[in-house]
């Protein structure tokens, strides 16, 4: 992935976060990964104290999002990212356990770029994350838009 793309990882389960990070690293992605374990913390970081998200302008971000969060719904975060003028071009990868067809459809409707169901089996999980890492290393990420 072309530097300097920052990966924002929103995942409430720290174990999962650690496993995801390790497996992404194993696929040779060395970008900065900023982990958040709660939706509120992630939103605060993404949109800043004024909620405009202006401070991330001209940065390249990629959001790795879990839908089942203890405080906010991942869908809500997705919607706010896609509605924000600065962040709407930021790729959002939904990585969650839910494989409900309705949920998947809804996420794509809201503008999510990739939806991945966490495989239950760890081997497949690790494999999926590594492939995601490989994917990250080849995709182009736009810079967030300036005002």
């Amino acid at each position: 992935m072309s530097n300097p793309v920052t990966i924002i990882m929103i995942e409430d389960d720290e174990g999962h976060a650690r496993l995801i990070e390790r497996n992404i690293r194993r696929s040779g992605v060395n970008n900065e990964i900023i982990p958040f374990t709660s939706g509120t913390a992630a939103l605060n970081y993404l949109f800043g104290p004024d909620g405009s998200g202006v401070e991330h302008q001209n940065r390249a971000l990629l959001v790795l999002l879990d839908l089942n969060l203890p405080d906010t719904s991942g869908i809500d975060i997705l919607r706010r990212i896609k509605e924000n003028d600065h962040l709407k071009c930021t790729p959002v990868v939904v990585l969650t356990t839910t494989d409900d067809a309705q949920e998947i459809k809804r996420c794509y409707e809201l503008g999510c770029n990739v939806y991945i169901t966490k495989p239950v089996n760890y081997e497949s999980f690790a494999n999926a994350i590594r492939q995601l890492g490989l994917f990250f290393s080849v995709i182009q990420v736009p810079q967030t838009e300036a005002t």
Partner: peptide, 13 residues
């Protein structure tokens, strides 16, 4: 399932 993925993952680790 979530904790189980962790248990599996870290067992592999």
């Amino acid at each position: 399932r979530s904790p189980l993925v962790n248990i599996m993952g870290f067992t592999s680790e």
